[in-house]
Design a protein around this nucleic acid. Structure first.
Length: 269
DNA sequence: GATCTATGTAGAT
DNA sequence: TCTACCTAGATCG
């Protein structure tokens, strides 16, 4: 679930459902109880996302910071919340809605300085208006690391995860192991523009779809069926299957602890 | 019902 | 580089 689009979608939902009104904040599981008590009953001023980080600002030096990690998840509903089931780290209850947070990597109450520290170490986020893609290119060009590794580095670009990485490289015919310094401005401009479009679509529909008109798989004669993550993709988790565009077997390799997927023909550079 | 795997990161080693 | 986190959907039997 959680690449940048998921967090922006949650921020938008929480802003709409909880902001500008008092919110009950508790920790049925107990691991967030002391911090929850400090904002419980206060007005949520603003919910926003930067990359994969979610911030609930209640006031000066009182921001709840959530990072879902790999397995964190929010569930939500209308009206009265049900009895907590399982390990609910944080429960928020507003006038008409409730939401439960389970399994996050981080759920902590931060001061303004601590929030700023997190945000300054993040790279530009394609889903934010304040993003400067040139900052990302500078970092990419300074490095001999594979572009596939750089795209996953949240201090280079904030919000890209394993699915968007694989799909972006495929869509731009980029070999994953291409060194960062070989990415030119024209290529990066095209990749960034595409990322903005793809991720905005992700926020809108709540899943990652990267198969668009210009890449229709004519050779296959049909659109790819939905993949396990719920959207339509070219190469992510398709190792051993034929490429939707050229039919070559999709390859996989572990790079820096994450599974990488690519088509050696379409992405031969 | 049991088992496997994962869209991620932090912290230990 | 390894492990913990400890959810949920897919797959196995």
């Amino acid at each position: 679930m959680p690449e940048g689009h998921t967090l922006h979608r949650l921020a938008r939902l929480h802003q709409r459902r909880f902001a500008r009104r008092p919110v009950s904040v508790t920790s049925p599981q107990g691991r967030f109880t002391a911090s929850a008590a400090l904002v419980d009953g206060q007005v949520l001023q603003r919910a926003e996302a930067h990359g994969k980080h979610l911030f609930h600002r209640y006031g000066r030096d009182a921001t709840v910071h959530v990072h879902l990690g790999l397995i964190g998840t929010f569930s939500e509903g209308d009206g009265e919340p049900p009895a907590p089931v399982g390990q609910v780290r944080m429960r928020m209850v507003g006038e008409d809605h409730w939401t439960d947070l389970r399994g996050p990597t981080l759920c902590q109450l931060l001061t303004d300085v601590e929030v700023a520290a997190i945000r300054t170490r993040l790279g530009p986020d394609p889903l934010r208006r304040d993003a400067d893609p040139a900052k990302a290119l500078t970092r990419i060009n300074r490095s001999g690391q594979p572009v596939a590794a750089l795209l996953m580095d949240q201090s280079v670009v904030a919000g890209i995860g394993n699915v968007y990485r694989a799909e972006l490289l495929f869509r731009h015919h980029v070999p994953p192991l291409l060194p960062g310094r070989a990415v030119d401005a024209e290529l990066w401009s095209a990749m960034w523009t595409d990322l903005v479009t793809l991720m905005r679509h992700g926020v809108r529909v709540g899943r990652i779809d990267t198969v668009r008109g210009e890449h229709l798989p004519r050779a296959m004669g049909r659109m790819p069926r939905q993949d396990r993550h719920g959207g339509e993709v070219y190469v992510y988790r398709r190792a051993g299957l034929p490429c939707h565009v050229c039919g070559t077997e999709v390859l996989t390799q572990v790079l820096a602890g994450r599974n990488l997927f690519w088509c050696p023909t379409c992405q031969s550079g």
